[in-house]
Design a protein around this nucleic acid. Structure first.
Lengths: 240, 240
DNA sequence: CGGCTCCTTGAGCCCAGTCAAAGTCCGTGG
DNA sequence: CCACGGACTTTGACTGGGCTCAAGGAGCCG
């Protein structure tokens, strides 16, 4: 099933008409190799929105001293900002982390989508609000959690988000980033991130080989990292 | 002038009709003392939006181990999420940092506002996108900058944001938070934040007494903290 | 003038960063 | 099928930025 529909269904049940409209968006995905910037680069004028169908991507920024911070992961079903073209310049970049298939949606299509389909419009608002909540939680993560908790929290989040689009398999899911990516996500060095992963493995909390991550004890991982999934708003909150 | 209008004018010139509509919102502000949670608390159902007219407020979250992270400051002209009521539960809290006057806008008023006034709708989208960009920059700040750079960056940002609503005086502006608040904002301890402030003063980069902060050398402060104001999108980007 | 809250300072420790090198995995081409 | 090369992961030794604990000082309000 289209991962965007699957994702939005966590919020609200969409009637068939709306589903058809959303399905129609996902024709003609583009296949993009790993580690490629999408067309909207920092400084350029955004005129489109990206929808990831398969693979992972991320938002990131590189500072003048060369350090990179990843500020968001895009997994299947994730959409880059629905109204990004209101701005005239991107203030960050978006790149694939893996090979990915991505749909490009022109600005006008997004406008028509929300103008003509109020339930989709509302679901996309939910989507936007969740994106904001996730980013805020990442501020909390790098600001207040210790290294081990930080990595554990990210793993919990990505597991739940992956499961929400039907891409988990029990407590296993595809976590296709390198340790360097992970380090730049949680604000630690590569070396320290690696040692933290050793700890998580030694504590029998996770296994992670060949991009396949398995959580061995979700409750302990969630408690230890103070993971409270409420900010993901996946409890079918759509009123009506 | 109404600080919301002033803020949105950084993006686009609003015709008098739109200004009048926005002015009308700001009748009956409520006066709230410092350190008070606004009605939407974590876990509660949001049904309104807040607009700050005077004073500062913040979004924050307290983790189970008692640590607080401030994820956003609200200064005059700042609006809490324009569509927050799409969610059924708040995942964080909002509190005043100082005495403040705040306008409460019911959900339906927000909907009418954007339905009936396309330019306001677009300006509010700009506002939302800037809020997101700010939060993302805060991820970068706590993730990749060192303590001194972090504090310096926040000062640069709050100076520019304050100036954008006409509340700066040369290189001086009201920075009415305690060092404890500041520490919880930049993800450092109070003690270390204090020492960093001593450094900034010793380096003759700032003075900060009685809530009045003066930047002594903006260029040096901006360079040192790698502050690039592009993410604030204040360059009157509104097309048309 | 007493008691808040907030700011400042000192000493010692530890979590995470840095530097450097070695090991592992995997795709590719001979 | 194996050798090679590049990307990614792991390990060790050392350093240092930021945290913790603790106490004292300054400003402000009643």
């Amino acid at each position: 099933m289209n991962p965007l529909i699957r994702k939005l269904s966590n919020y609200i049940d969409l009637p068939q008409a709306d589903r058809t409209v959303l399905e129609a968006l996902s024709r003609k995905p583009e296949h993009i190799v790993a580690h490629t910037d999408l067309m909207i680069r920092e400084g350029a004028a955004p005129d489109r929105v990206y929808l990831v169908l398969t693979g992972w991507a991320c938002r990131y920024k590189v500072l003048p001293h060369g350090k990179r911070q990843i500020m968001d992961y895009f997994i299947p079903g994730d959409l880059s900002d629905q109204r990004i073209f209101v701005l005239t310049r991107m203030d960050h970049s978006i790149a694939t982390l893996t090979a990915a298939s991505v749909v490009t949606i022109p600005a006008q299509t997004m406008i028509d989508l929300t103008d003509g389909h109020p339930r989709i419009a509302q679901a996309l608002w939910w989507n936007t609000l969740v994106d904001e909540a996730v980013t805020r939680e990442w501020v909390v993560n790098v600001g207040q959690r210790k290294a081990l908790e930080r990595v554990a929290h990210l793993i919990c989040e990505m597991f739940v988000r992956t499961r929400a689009v039907g891409l988990s398999d029990g407590l296993s899911f595809d976590f296709p980033v390198t340790q360097t990516d992970l380090a730049d996500t949680v604000g630690l060095t590569l070396v320290h991130t690696n040692r933290i992963l050793q700890n998580l493995r030694a504590e029998r909390l996770i296994t992670w080989t060949r991009h396949k991550l398995t959580i061995l004890d979700f409750d302990r991982l969630a408690t230890l990292s103070m993971f409270n999934p409420q900010y993901l708003h996946l409890e079918h909150e759509g009123r009506d």
